[in-house]
Design a binder for these strands. Structure first.
Length: 426
RNA sequence: GUCCCCAUCGUCUAGCCUGGUCCAGGACAACAGAUUUUCGAUCUGUCGACCGGGGUUCAAAUCCCCGUGGGGACGCCA
């Protein structure tokens, strides 16, 4: 039975890199019918906080990375660490240094078989003895980690490359304790554009940030799974079920992967488009928390379902419908409103639109097309200025459907404001 | 400094283990065209890589060695 764990320390929000580690452990457990355990490594009481702990748990849930056992807390297991340290002391494998207990690392060369990297040789004569228990009575990382992994019967340790140099120390501890070590799989790190590990300098680094930026959990799971792993069949857009089905440790690669926002955004767009309208409406309402009713929001969402790649983009479009304080884009005004005749055309359009009843997309379009024919102008000569006048932007969903959704009152009000401003009169 | 890891298009990657099917495949981005009232979506196309040098071999992106470059670890942090 495969048993894996994710062991974050609550000294910050769930980082993109940690989330990927959690994801790979989860994927492995789910693909093997194994057990996924959550363990909180909160031994550093100065830096740990409940706020971060709760944040990490919330983000794990949001991503859908459900665990089978835990969360366990290291601060509640100090007795176990102490007992184990004393056992090593009695066996003469550790010694005291003041209040601290130190493990004597045997001077041997060790070979570690890593599931990703293959054989790694290390020389333990080169490393210092290992602190087991600190002077303040708390356990040191490498020790607590091993004691817990034994207790929790962890079979596979899947973690970042940065832990490779902890592995020989931990293996020495397993040997001293007479326990066979678990299998190790060290995966490549996620890097920023400068090839250095993702840092605040990059901007958003926590899952919470990405949620706020309108990314979907399924898109993050999909994208993160592709960083350092690939299904090998050229298929990249996948749901969690499919990824689980295809996942294997064997296909994890060894090279650090740069985090690329463009691709995340593309995948997010794909997942949005994969949504049924019901699902999209629900995601949109959860994110935007609109004042309007669901029926109206549903129509709005339908217009933008294939036009936005993040929920934030959807929210921006939403704002255009809600507030009559239209923000006019300078370029759009320059290009479509400041032209001869535009004011006249908009005036006539306003008069005609006022008579359209009911104010539906079909009726609006019929009236507009008729007007275009009468005035002997191109459709574009009416459509573009109309769009800018009403939305403030040169891009939107189809004008006629936007107008219908906006409603006659708002449309007329916005048109009058633009006409009053006298654009187009020279 | 010492030890360890890594090296295919700008980016993510397939191929490498088991050498020939690879004048290296896919995706994102970029660019161009088609379509569209704009944008998006969609379709088509273009651009673009085996870090360098030696070796092994009839044959190397694939195996070996040496460089170089990048990263990590050397905490009573985790």
């Amino acid at each position: 039975m495969v048993r894996v764990r994710f062991a974050p320390s609550p000294t910050g929000y769930l980082h993109i890199g940690s989330a990927r580690t959690a994801l790979f452990n989860w994927l492995y457990a789910r693909s093997q019918g194994g057990v996924f355990i959550l363990r909180i490594e909160d031994t550093d009481q100065k830096r740990s906080s409940d706020v971060f702990m709760e944040g990490i748990i919330a983000d794990m849930k949001w991503l859908g990375l459900n665990w089978d056992e835990g969360p366990f807390f290291q601060t509640k297991r100090f007795d176990a660490y102490r007992a184990c340290a004393h056992e090593l002391l009695e066996k003469g494998l550790a010694y005291k240094d003041g209040e601290a207990i130190i493990f004597k690392i045997p001077d041997v060369k060790v070979k570690i078989h890593d599931l990703v990297h293959g054989e790694i040789e290390m020389d333990n004569t080169l490393i210092d003895d290992l602190v087991l228990m600190k002077s303040d009575g708390s356990p040191a990382y490498n020790f607590a980690c091993v004691v817990d992994d034994i207790e929790m019967q962890i079979t596979h340790v899947i973690r970042g490359d940065d832990h490779i140099s902890n592995t020989n120390k931990q293996v020495a501890l397993y040997d001293a304790l007479g326990i066979r070590p678990p299998k190790f799989a060290h995966m490549p790190l996620i890097l920023g554009p400068d090839k250095a590990p993702l840092s605040k300098r990059f901007g958003a680094v926590s899952i919470t940030d990405y949620r706020a930026m309108g990314y979907l959990p399924q898109a993050l799971v999909n994208y993160l799974s592709l960083l350092g792993w690939s299904p090998g069949d050229n298929k990249e857009f996948m749901g969690a079920e499919e990824i689980i089905k295809k996942f294997s440790l064997k296909r994890i690669n060894k090279t650090g992967a740069e985090f690329n926002l463009d691709k995340l955004r593309w995948i997010n767009g794909e997942h949005i488009r994969k949504f049924t309208l019901d699902e999209f409406v629900k995601a949109g309402m959860d994110f935007i928390k609109p004042e309007c009713g669901e029926a109206w929001f549903r129509k709005f969402a339908g217009l933008y379902h294939s036009r936005v790649k993040t929920l934030v983009e959807l929210k921006e479009e939403f704002g255009i419908f809600m507030s009559d304080d239209v923000r006019y884009n300078d370029d759009a005004v320059e290009k479509f409103l400041k032209k001869d005749k535009v004011s006249d055309i908009l005036s006539v359009t306003r008069e005609r639109l006022e008579k359209v009843d009911p104010f539906t997309q079909e009726n609006i379009e019929k009236e507009a097309r008729a007007l275009v024919a009468e005035l002997k102008i191109e459709s574009a000569d009416l459509i573009h200025p109309l769009r800018v006048a009403v939305t403030g932007k040169a891009v939107s969903a189809g004008v006629f459907e936007v107008l219908a959704l906006l409603g006659k009152d708002k449309v007329i009000k916005r048109l009058e404001k633009v006409i009053g401003a006298g654009y187009g009169r020279k």
